[in-house]
Write a protein that binds this DNA or RNA. Structure first.
Lengths: 144, 144
DNA sequence: TTTATTATATTGATATATCAATTATATTTG
DNA sequence: CAAATATAATTGATATATCAATATAATAAA
């Protein structure tokens, strides 16, 4: 019991990696060329149209630099269009293309199915408990 | 309550990222030039001297290709020495240098403190429950 | 024993993570 | 208004993740 604390972070790491692998496999198997991370960014941009990139980055748990590069990629893939922001010329207005909307719609079913698959046999109560524990860990690690 | 399932993976992701950031900060603050991942690989190699890289990779949840590159780095940093395996010339024997042993010893205290910090205010029972839930997720995602 | 197959590890290409430095623009302050 | 400061985003350098392809050696099959 003494070393239980010591390995829970490995399980955490392993669980999220295993889930990501599974989710990615399902998506590519269905012919989507959007990664889980790219999906997350598109979703966040879609739900928060006029939000600065930095806040999108925080919302998606991504580094600013990473986000910049992901956005470049999504523009190149023609899922995003980037125009200068009318009020603040340091910023950009990022708009999802029609193509992006279609892909998001088609992906939704797979995403939901992935989560359901990953949570098979786990009760709402367990999920809630884990959620709370994770919240505590996040809080702890944000303190010095 | 309906969308609880849908966000637990974000919390998972966020928790492990936040923990890694915290752990990394603590290590660099104490002057260590070994990342958490590198530490994990050194530890695994130390505990399993004659194990093939593929198994080390599985044990550390790393991709084979990633591991190859991490090992290169660790050799360059003079934490590992690499010699051809006497029984199987496709393989290498990886040995920790004296320097690596010393660093591992000195890091141990910080690593343990990091985990303790991250788990403040969380009971053994909660940790155990989370551990089980994570195990179930891992199992689920390893099935088709 | 030669060939085919399998196993071990590396390499290349691309995506993401992180830190530090930089550019461009806005805002504040003197 | 001009200088200092702050903000938004990008860029560079390095580390890691992932997939596909390759090289080399070991083993199995013909």
């Amino acid at each position: 019991m003494e070393n239980l604390n010591e390995i829970v972070f490995y399980s955490l790491d392993k669980a999220i990696r295993t889930y990501r692998q599974y989710a990615h496999q399902q998506l590519t198997a269905q012919g989507f060329d959007v990664t889980v991370d790219q999906w997350l960014v598109l979703k966040a941009l879609n739900d928060n149209p006029d939000m600065p990139q930095q806040q999108i980055a925080e919302m998606t748990f991504k580094d600013y630099a990473s986000l910049t590069r992901m956005i470049e990629l999504l523009v190149k893939k023609q899922y995003l269009s980037r125009t200068i922001h009318p009020q603040d010329r340091r910023r950009f207005t990022l708009t999802l293309t029609q193509n992006a909307h279609e892909v998001l719609n088609r992906m939704q079913k797979v995403i939901v199915a992935n989560r359901k698959h990953a949570l098979q046999g786990i009760s709402e109560a367990q999920i809630k408990a884990m959620h709370e524990t994770l919240g505590q860990i996040i809080q702890n690690c944000n303190k010095t």
